[in-house]
Protein backbone atom coordinates (compact mmCIF):
# COMPACT_ATOMS: atom_id res chain seq x y z
CA UNK A 1 0.00 0.00 0.00
CA UNK A 2 1.42 3.38 -0.85
CA UNK A 3 1.90 6.16 1.67
CA UNK A 4 -1.13 8.26 0.74
CA UNK A 5 -3.41 5.25 1.11
CA UNK A 6 -1.84 4.35 4.43
CA UNK A 7 -2.62 7.87 5.64
CA UNK A 8 -6.18 7.56 4.35
CA UNK A 9 -6.55 4.26 6.20
CA UNK A 10 -5.30 5.76 9.45
CA UNK A 11 -7.60 8.72 9.02
CA UNK A 12 -10.59 6.46 8.32
CA UNK A 13 -9.81 4.29 11.34
CA UNK A 14 -9.52 7.37 13.56
CA UNK A 15 -12.80 8.78 12.29
CA UNK A 16 -14.83 5.59 12.26
CA UNK A 17 -13.61 3.81 15.41
CA UNK A 18 -16.10 5.69 17.60
CA UNK A 19 -19.02 4.02 15.83
CA UNK A 20 -17.93 0.47 16.72
CA UNK A 21 -19.19 0.88 20.28
CA UNK A 22 -21.81 -1.58 21.55
CA UNK A 23 -23.85 1.25 23.17
CA UNK A 24 -24.30 3.04 19.85
CA UNK A 25 -24.73 -0.14 17.82
CA UNK A 26 -27.39 -1.36 20.24
CA UNK A 27 -29.33 1.88 19.82
CA UNK A 28 -29.04 1.77 16.06
CA UNK A 29 -30.13 -1.85 15.95
CA UNK A 30 -33.11 -0.99 18.15
CA UNK A 31 -34.26 1.43 15.47
CA UNK A 32 -32.72 4.76 16.40
CA UNK A 33 -32.74 7.23 13.55
CA UNK A 34 -29.46 7.13 11.57
CA UNK A 35 -29.56 10.73 10.34
CA UNK A 36 -27.29 11.90 13.14
CA UNK A 37 -24.67 9.23 12.42
CA UNK A 38 -24.85 10.07 8.73
CA UNK A 39 -24.37 13.78 9.46
CA UNK A 40 -21.24 12.94 11.40
CA UNK A 41 -19.99 10.63 8.61
CA UNK A 42 -20.71 13.21 5.93
CA UNK A 43 -18.37 15.69 7.63
CA UNK A 44 -15.48 13.32 6.91
CA UNK A 45 -15.90 13.78 3.17
CA UNK A 46 -15.33 10.14 2.26
CA UNK A 47 -18.66 9.82 0.45
CA UNK A 48 -17.47 12.12 -2.33
CA UNK A 49 -14.70 9.74 -3.46
CA UNK A 50 -16.38 8.92 -6.77
CA UNK A 51 -17.71 12.45 -7.15
CA UNK A 52 -14.39 14.12 -7.82
CA UNK A 53 -12.83 14.04 -4.36
CA UNK A 54 -10.22 11.42 -5.28
CA UNK A 55 -7.75 10.93 -8.13
CA UNK A 56 -7.86 7.20 -7.61
CA UNK A 57 -11.40 6.48 -6.46
CA UNK A 58 -11.46 2.66 -6.63
CA UNK A 59 -8.32 2.20 -4.57
CA UNK A 60 -9.40 4.86 -2.07
CA UNK A 61 -12.88 3.37 -1.87
CA UNK A 62 -11.35 -0.01 -1.05
CA UNK A 63 -9.59 1.51 1.97
CA UNK A 64 -12.77 3.22 3.19
CA UNK A 65 -15.02 0.21 2.62
CA UNK A 66 -12.71 -2.08 4.59
CA UNK A 67 -12.65 0.51 7.39
CA UNK A 68 -16.48 0.63 7.35
CA UNK A 69 -16.44 -3.15 7.86
CA UNK A 70 -13.75 -3.02 10.52
CA UNK A 71 -15.87 -0.59 12.55
CA UNK A 72 -19.27 -1.97 11.46
CA UNK A 73 -20.35 1.57 10.63
CA UNK A 74 -24.10 2.02 11.13
CA UNK A 75 -24.63 4.33 8.16
CA UNK A 76 -24.91 3.98 4.37
CA UNK A 77 -21.39 5.14 3.52
CA UNK A 78 -20.52 1.92 1.62
CA UNK A 79 -23.73 2.12 -0.41
CA UNK A 80 -23.25 5.83 -1.12
CA UNK A 81 -19.71 5.15 -2.32
CA UNK A 82 -20.65 2.32 -4.65
CA UNK A 83 -23.76 4.07 -5.90
CA UNK A 84 -21.40 6.93 -6.70
CA UNK A 85 -19.16 4.53 -8.61
CA UNK A 86 -22.11 3.38 -10.71
CA UNK A 87 -23.33 6.94 -11.29
CA UNK A 88 -19.88 7.80 -12.55
CA UNK A 89 -19.69 4.63 -14.61
CA UNK A 90 -22.97 5.49 -16.31
CA UNK A 91 -21.66 8.98 -17.06
CA UNK A 92 -24.21 10.78 -14.87
CA UNK A 93 -23.81 13.91 -12.77
CA UNK A 94 -22.73 13.26 -9.15
CA UNK A 95 -25.52 13.10 -6.59
CA UNK A 96 -25.12 14.59 -3.13
CA UNK A 97 -26.13 13.03 0.15
CA UNK A 98 -26.61 9.44 1.19
CA UNK A 99 -27.60 7.07 -1.62
CA UNK A 100 -29.15 3.62 -1.35
CA UNK A 101 -28.04 0.88 -3.71
CA UNK A 102 -30.65 -1.51 -5.02
CA UNK A 103 -29.91 -5.10 -5.85
CA UNK A 104 -31.21 -6.31 -9.24
CA UNK A 105 -32.61 -9.27 -7.36
CA UNK A 106 -34.90 -7.10 -5.23
CA UNK A 107 -35.81 -4.36 -7.66
CA UNK A 108 -38.81 -4.46 -9.97
CA UNK A 109 -39.37 -1.27 -11.88
CA UNK A 110 -41.37 -0.60 -15.01
CA UNK A 111 -41.78 2.44 -17.18
CA UNK A 112 -44.92 4.46 -16.50
CA UNK A 113 -45.87 7.59 -18.43
CA UNK A 114 -43.42 10.18 -19.69
CA UNK A 115 -40.29 8.56 -18.40
CA UNK A 116 -41.66 8.03 -14.92
CA UNK A 117 -41.31 4.65 -13.28
CA UNK A 118 -43.48 2.52 -11.07
CA UNK A 119 -42.50 -0.46 -8.98
CA UNK A 120 -40.85 -1.60 -5.83
CA UNK A 121 -37.36 -2.00 -4.44
CA UNK A 122 -36.52 -3.81 -1.22
CA UNK A 123 -33.37 -4.68 0.71
CA UNK A 124 -32.29 -1.04 0.47
CA UNK A 125 -29.67 -0.46 3.17
CA UNK A 126 -30.63 2.53 5.32
CA UNK A 127 -33.34 3.48 2.87
CA UNK A 128 -34.93 5.79 5.42
CA UNK A 129 -31.78 7.88 5.71
CA UNK A 130 -31.06 8.01 2.00
CA UNK A 131 -32.34 10.78 -0.18
CA UNK A 132 -31.81 8.86 -3.39
CA UNK A 133 -31.51 5.30 -4.57
CA UNK A 134 -29.52 3.95 -7.48
CA UNK A 135 -31.61 1.19 -8.98
CA UNK A 136 -31.28 -1.10 -11.98
CA UNK A 137 -34.06 -1.19 -14.57
CA UNK A 138 -33.57 -3.25 -17.72
CA UNK A 139 -30.16 -2.31 -19.09
CA UNK A 140 -29.89 1.00 -17.30
CA UNK A 141 -29.57 2.52 -13.88
CA UNK A 142 -31.86 5.17 -12.51
CA UNK A 143 -31.29 7.66 -9.75
CA UNK A 144 -34.64 7.90 -8.01
CA UNK A 145 -35.61 10.16 -5.12
CA UNK A 146 -36.69 8.22 -2.04
CA UNK A 147 -39.80 10.22 -1.24
CA UNK A 148 -42.72 9.10 0.82
CA UNK A 149 -43.05 6.13 3.08
CA UNK A 150 -40.29 3.56 3.29
CA UNK A 151 -41.11 0.28 4.96
CA UNK A 152 -38.38 -0.88 7.28
CA UNK A 153 -36.99 -4.40 7.46
CA UNK A 154 -33.69 -5.60 8.84
CA UNK A 155 -31.02 -8.19 8.09
CA UNK A 156 -29.65 -10.36 10.90
CA UNK A 157 -27.08 -7.67 11.64
CA UNK A 158 -30.25 -5.63 12.38
CA UNK A 159 -29.09 -3.17 9.77
CA UNK A 160 -32.02 -1.52 8.00
CA UNK A 161 -32.89 -3.19 4.72
CA UNK A 162 -35.84 -1.12 3.64
CA UNK A 163 -38.54 -1.42 1.02
CA UNK A 164 -39.85 1.46 -1.04
CA UNK A 165 -42.74 1.68 -3.46
CA UNK A 166 -42.43 4.00 -6.44
CA UNK A 167 -45.60 5.31 -8.07
CA UNK A 168 -44.98 7.32 -11.22
CA UNK A 169 -41.70 8.49 -9.76
CA UNK A 170 -39.60 10.85 -11.86
CA UNK A 171 -35.95 9.76 -12.08
CA UNK A 172 -33.48 12.46 -11.30
CA UNK A 173 -31.16 10.84 -13.84
CA UNK A 174 -30.69 7.64 -15.78
CA UNK A 175 -28.09 6.06 -17.99
CA UNK A 176 -27.17 2.80 -19.66
CA UNK A 177 -25.53 0.26 -17.39
CA UNK A 178 -26.08 -3.49 -17.20
CA UNK A 179 -27.74 -4.86 -14.08
CA UNK A 180 -24.74 -7.17 -13.76
CA UNK A 181 -22.60 -4.11 -13.03
CA UNK A 182 -24.89 -3.16 -10.15
CA UNK A 183 -24.66 -6.69 -8.77
CA UNK A 184 -20.87 -6.64 -9.11
CA UNK A 185 -20.50 -3.25 -7.43
CA UNK A 186 -22.66 -4.49 -4.56
CA UNK A 187 -20.62 -7.68 -4.28
CA UNK A 188 -17.33 -5.78 -4.19
CA UNK A 189 -18.78 -3.50 -1.51
CA UNK A 190 -19.88 -6.35 0.75
CA UNK A 191 -16.63 -8.25 0.08
CA UNK A 192 -14.58 -5.25 1.23
CA UNK A 193 -16.75 -4.79 4.33
CA UNK A 194 -16.35 -8.49 5.10
CA UNK A 195 -12.56 -8.31 4.74
CA UNK A 196 -12.52 -5.40 7.19
CA UNK A 197 -14.85 -7.08 9.67
CA UNK A 198 -12.81 -10.30 9.49
CA UNK A 199 -9.68 -8.31 10.37
CA UNK A 200 -11.52 -6.90 13.39
CA UNK A 201 -12.79 -10.33 14.41
CA UNK A 202 -9.24 -11.71 14.17
CA UNK A 203 -7.84 -8.92 16.34
CA UNK A 204 -10.62 -9.38 18.90
CA UNK A 205 -10.15 -13.14 19.01
CA UNK A 206 -6.36 -12.91 19.34
CA UNK A 207 -6.74 -10.50 22.22
CA UNK A 208 -9.24 -12.75 23.97
CA UNK A 209 -7.02 -15.82 23.49
CA UNK A 210 -4.10 -14.00 25.10
CA UNK A 211 -6.13 -12.74 28.06
CA UNK A 212 -8.54 -15.53 28.89
CA UNK A 213 -7.02 -18.00 31.34
CA UNK A 214 -8.08 -21.61 31.77
CA UNK A 215 -6.17 -24.50 33.32
CA UNK A 216 -3.82 -21.87 34.73
CA UNK A 217 -2.70 -20.34 31.45
CA UNK A 218 -3.96 -18.24 28.54
CA UNK A 219 -6.09 -20.35 26.21
CA UNK A 220 -3.98 -19.04 23.31
CA UNK A 221 -1.11 -21.15 24.62
CA UNK A 222 -3.00 -24.33 23.78
CA UNK A 223 -2.09 -25.83 20.43
CA UNK A 224 -5.72 -26.61 19.64
CA UNK A 225 -6.56 -22.90 19.88
CA UNK A 226 -3.36 -21.76 18.17
CA UNK A 227 -4.09 -23.83 15.09
CA UNK A 228 -7.65 -22.54 14.84
CA UNK A 229 -6.35 -18.97 15.06
CA UNK A 230 -3.75 -19.75 12.39
CA UNK A 231 -6.62 -20.87 10.13
CA UNK A 232 -8.55 -17.70 10.95
CA UNK A 233 -5.50 -15.55 10.19
CA UNK A 234 -5.05 -17.33 6.85
CA UNK A 235 -8.65 -16.59 5.86
CA UNK A 236 -8.25 -12.98 6.98
CA UNK A 237 -5.11 -12.57 4.87
CA UNK A 238 -6.74 -14.19 1.84
CA UNK A 239 -9.89 -12.08 2.16
CA UNK A 240 -7.92 -8.84 2.36
CA UNK A 241 -5.66 -9.82 -0.53
CA UNK A 242 -8.65 -10.81 -2.68
CA UNK A 243 -10.39 -7.51 -2.02
CA UNK A 244 -7.32 -5.29 -2.45
CA UNK A 245 -6.48 -7.02 -5.72
CA UNK A 246 -10.04 -6.79 -7.01
CA UNK A 247 -10.32 -3.03 -6.48
CA UNK A 248 -6.88 -2.54 -7.99
CA UNK A 249 -7.76 -4.49 -11.16
CA UNK A 250 -11.06 -2.67 -11.49
CA UNK A 251 -9.26 0.66 -11.04
CA UNK A 252 -6.84 -0.22 -13.83
CA UNK A 253 -9.53 -1.27 -16.26
CA UNK A 254 -12.34 1.12 -15.47
CA UNK A 255 -14.96 0.56 -18.09
CA UNK A 256 -14.18 -3.10 -18.65
CA UNK A 257 -17.29 -4.97 -17.57
CA UNK A 258 -15.65 -8.39 -17.83
CA UNK A 259 -12.95 -7.42 -15.34
CA UNK A 260 -15.60 -6.01 -12.99
CA UNK A 261 -17.58 -9.26 -13.13
CA UNK A 262 -14.55 -11.49 -12.69
CA UNK A 263 -13.08 -9.53 -9.81
CA UNK A 264 -16.41 -9.20 -8.02
CA UNK A 265 -16.83 -12.96 -8.30
CA UNK A 266 -13.34 -13.75 -6.98
CA UNK A 267 -13.69 -11.29 -4.09
CA UNK A 268 -17.21 -12.30 -3.06
CA UNK A 269 -16.47 -16.03 -3.25
CA UNK A 270 -13.24 -15.84 -1.28
CA UNK A 271 -14.41 -13.39 1.39
CA UNK A 272 -17.72 -15.22 1.78
CA UNK A 273 -15.88 -18.42 2.59
CA UNK A 274 -13.50 -16.55 4.88
CA UNK A 275 -16.43 -14.90 6.68
CA UNK A 276 -18.01 -18.25 7.49
CA UNK A 277 -14.75 -19.67 8.84
CA UNK A 278 -13.85 -16.51 10.74
CA UNK A 279 -17.22 -16.22 12.50
CA UNK A 280 -17.16 -19.88 13.42
CA UNK A 281 -13.62 -19.87 14.84
CA UNK A 282 -14.12 -16.54 16.62
CA UNK A 283 -17.22 -17.79 18.42
CA UNK A 284 -15.65 -21.12 19.34
CA UNK A 285 -12.60 -19.34 20.78
CA UNK A 286 -14.67 -16.81 22.73
CA UNK A 287 -16.81 -19.50 24.30
CA UNK A 288 -20.09 -18.64 26.01
CA UNK A 289 -19.26 -15.00 26.70
CA UNK A 290 -19.00 -14.37 22.95
CA UNK A 291 -22.51 -15.72 22.54
CA UNK A 292 -23.98 -13.12 24.90
CA UNK A 293 -25.76 -9.96 23.90
CA UNK A 294 -23.40 -8.07 26.18
CA UNK A 295 -20.26 -9.00 24.22
CA UNK A 296 -19.38 -7.00 21.11
CA UNK A 297 -18.35 -9.97 18.94
CA UNK A 298 -21.86 -10.53 17.57
CA UNK A 299 -22.06 -7.04 16.09
CA UNK A 300 -19.39 -8.26 13.69
CA UNK A 301 -20.41 -11.88 13.18
CA UNK A 302 -24.10 -11.16 12.57
CA UNK A 303 -23.11 -8.69 9.90
CA UNK A 304 -20.70 -11.18 8.34
CA UNK A 305 -23.51 -13.70 8.13
CA UNK A 306 -25.71 -11.15 6.37
CA UNK A 307 -23.07 -9.67 4.11
CA UNK A 308 -21.94 -13.07 2.81
CA UNK A 309 -25.45 -13.50 1.36
CA UNK A 310 -26.13 -9.97 0.11
CA UNK A 311 -25.47 -9.17 -3.56
CA UNK A 312 -25.00 -12.83 -4.39
CA UNK A 313 -23.78 -15.70 -2.25
CA UNK A 314 -20.42 -17.31 -2.87
CA UNK A 315 -22.32 -20.18 -4.49
CA UNK A 316 -24.20 -17.87 -6.85
CA UNK A 317 -21.03 -16.14 -8.00
CA UNK A 318 -19.17 -19.46 -8.19
CA UNK A 319 -21.79 -20.96 -10.44
CA UNK A 320 -21.67 -18.00 -12.84
CA UNK A 321 -17.89 -18.04 -12.91
CA UNK A 322 -17.84 -21.80 -13.26
CA UNK A 323 -20.13 -21.75 -16.30
CA UNK A 324 -17.73 -19.36 -17.97
CA UNK A 325 -14.73 -21.55 -17.11
CA UNK A 326 -16.46 -24.64 -18.50
CA UNK A 327 -17.54 -22.90 -21.68
CA UNK A 328 -13.97 -21.76 -22.40
CA UNK A 329 -12.58 -25.25 -21.83
CA UNK A 330 -9.57 -26.73 -20.07
CA UNK A 331 -6.91 -25.11 -22.25
CA UNK A 332 -8.14 -21.64 -21.32
CA UNK A 333 -8.07 -22.24 -17.57
CA UNK A 334 -4.45 -21.49 -16.74
CA UNK A 335 -4.20 -18.57 -19.19
CA UNK A 336 -7.28 -17.05 -17.48
CA UNK A 337 -5.53 -17.33 -14.12
CA UNK A 338 -2.37 -15.59 -15.32
CA UNK A 339 -4.29 -12.99 -17.32
CA UNK A 340 -6.08 -12.00 -14.12
CA UNK A 341 -2.66 -10.94 -12.79
Amino acid sequence: MDESRRILEESADRSLAKFAEPALLRQMEAGEDAHEVWASVAEMGFEQIFAGASDDPWRDACVILKACGRHVLPAPLPETLMAGALIRRAGLEPVEGPIALGSPRYTELALADAGDVTGRASHLAWGQVCRHAVLPMLEQILVLPLEGRTHSERNIGREPRDAHVFVSATPRAGGPLPGDDVMAAGALMRAAQMAGAIEAVLAMTLQYARERQQFGKPIGSFQAIQHQLAILAGHAAAATRAVDAAFERVAESEGDGAVLQFEAAIAKIRTGEAASAAASIAHQTHGAIGFTDEHRLHYFTRRLWSWRSEFGTAAWWSERLGREIASKGADAFWPSVTAAG
Binding site: A238, S318, V337
Partner: peptide, 24 residues
Protein backbone atom coordinates in the same frame (compact mmCIF):
# COMPACT_ATOMS: atom_id res chain seq x y z
CA UNK B 1 -19.00 -26.91 -21.81
CA UNK B 2 -22.40 -27.38 -20.12
CA UNK B 3 -21.84 -28.02 -16.42
CA UNK B 4 -24.66 -28.61 -13.99
CA UNK B 5 -25.07 -26.11 -11.14
CA UNK B 6 -23.00 -28.12 -8.71
CA UNK B 7 -20.14 -28.62 -11.15
CA UNK B 8 -20.14 -24.98 -12.18
CA UNK B 9 -20.12 -23.77 -8.57
CA UNK B 10 -17.18 -26.03 -7.74
CA UNK B 11 -15.16 -24.81 -10.72
CA UNK B 12 -15.85 -21.16 -9.92
CA UNK B 13 -14.83 -21.66 -6.33
CA UNK B 14 -11.57 -23.34 -7.33
CA UNK B 15 -10.77 -20.41 -9.62
CA UNK B 16 -11.43 -17.89 -6.82
CA UNK B 17 -9.11 -19.74 -4.48
CA UNK B 18 -6.40 -20.23 -7.08
CA UNK B 19 -6.41 -16.62 -8.28
CA UNK B 20 -6.22 -15.38 -4.69
CA UNK B 21 -3.49 -17.83 -3.66
CA UNK B 22 -1.45 -16.82 -6.66
CA UNK B 23 -1.80 -13.15 -5.81
CA UNK B 24 -0.68 -13.87 -2.24
Amino acid sequence: PNPDARQAAALGRLMAHLVTLRRM
